[in-house]
Structure formats: structure tokens, C-alpha cells
Amino acid sequence: MSGLSTTTQNPKAPHPLAEFWGYFSANRGAMLGLGLLIILLIVMLGAGFLAPHLPAEQYRDALRMPPVWIDGGSWRFILGTDDIGRDILSRIMHGAQVSMSVGGMVVLLAIVLGITLGLIAGFSPGIVDTTLMRIMDILLALPGLLMALVIVAILGPSLSNAAIAIVIVQLPHFVRLTRASVINERTKDYVTASIVSGARRPRLMVITVLPNCLAPLIVQGTLSVSNAILDLAALGFLGLGAQPPTPEWGTMLANALQFIQSDWWIVTFPGLAILITVVAFNLLGDGLRDALDPKLKR
């Protein structure tokens, strides 16, 4: 390729990654999202030694203590303590591990399953494709949270069941997206060339076509992490996800309504953590879309 560009005396095309970074880093929102995400990752990975207390440790001498900047607060508990004397900051930091790792894993699983089913559907028109897509339509017939509720109602409330429910809820989006890109790519010349040179179906699917379908999947994947975290927190809040004393952000808010009259900090901070994380992933996803979408680059 580089030989070609020197003979035609064109300036050397930048490496695709460098080009991508050029577009991405020019987007202030995306960089903010990336920065937030890096901080969140540090908090998540370092919660074990960064957090001042253990997430389940109860200080009987410090029940419902306000944050440090309020009268009666202390540096021992920077964001205050909850109704049974647990440090809210430490619980939020450990909660990052639960929310972000489960959210990330859920999306990863949905992407892998979705790509597999999408490739199968895109490469086998007819009965297989139709059946698969009708099943996906059924899964999309209910709003995500309600579908997740139904699945949890079948499996029983727990963090792992909530995660399974969210994988099932997110799956159809990835199947549809993969299938649409596959169908779009399948008729292109490079695929025909590959078929003519004798590539078999698995090679065609994974090595020839899939890499060209990845851009929208990466964008959808990033945006889906934020949905997964929100749904996970909502299920936790409704008492159908992670169970106490797991420091999951939504579960931490499950009993918050009873403290709303007196102890606002118990209500405020876990939700703020959810919001910041979701904003970070959404900004990142928007930035990736702008940087990866060739239509917007022109």
C-alpha cells in the first residue's frame, strides 16, 4: 500500500488507528467520557486498598453520620454512613466493581452471542434467518426493563439472574446489527473474491466479513454498557437484582425512600455514582460513533 502511495505522490495515508484517534481526541465530550472512565476504572480496580473501610463493616458508634462538610460529619466517613453505620464512600467504591464488571461482562456476553447468531442469520437466508429474527422481534416486543423483570420473575431474584436477564434483553440489538451489516457486506466484491478463491463459510464469516462489521458493534457495545448498568441498578433498586448486603449501587438505594426526610446523603451519593458512570459510557459511545462513522467524517 505504501509503495502505491509513493508512486502516485499522494501524501501517506495515516494509520487507521491514528486517524481514528485524531477524530476522537478532537471531540471534547468523548475525551471527558474517556477521562471519567479511566478514573472509574482506577477506583474499581483499586477499591480494595483505596477505600477507607470494608464495604460491609458496620460502625455502631456512627449510625447515619452526615458527610464531612456538614456539622457532625467527620473525616473518618467522608460521604457519611448509612443506617447501620457502613461507610458510604467505601460501599460506592466497591459498588463500582459490581456495577461496572457485571455491566461490562453482560455486554461482552451479549456481543459474542449476538455476533454468532447475527452471522448465522446473515449467512443463511430463508427459514433459519426468519426464525431467528422473529424470536428477536418477540424479545423486543416488551420494553427492556419489563422483559428483564419477566426473566427475573422466572429465574428468581439475584445478581447473576439479573445479569442473565439483561444479556437476553440486549441480545436482539446485537443480532440485528450484525445481521444487517453482514447482509450489506455479503454482496461486495471482496467477499465474492474470497468465495471464488475457495474460502469456506466459517472463514468467510469470521475472517472476511466480521472485521468489516465491527465499527457499529463497538459503538452499540459502549452505549449498551450504560444501559446494562442502568437496568442492573433499577433491578437492584426494585429488590430483584443484587441482594443486600452486596454493595450494588441500585440495591444501596432500595431502602433510601425511608431516609429521604432526614438523611439525604444516603439517597444522593449512590445515584450520583450511577449517573457519572452512565454519562461516561454515553459520552464515550457518542464519541466513538462520530469517529467511526465515515458519513460524518466528510
Binding site: 450504560s226 441500585g250 438505594l253 433510601a256 444522593t268 449517573l275
Partner: peptide, 18 residues
Amino acid sequence: SVTGYSMPIFWWALLLIL
């Protein structure tokens, strides 16, 4: 708007009550 569509609405509802 980004903040709005990232909002965990159960928490937002609690904040509004607060």
C-alpha cells in the same frame, strides 16, 4: 441532554422528592 438520558430515573425521582 446527555445527563438527562443517562439518568437513573428512580434516583432522579428520589432527588425530586428530596
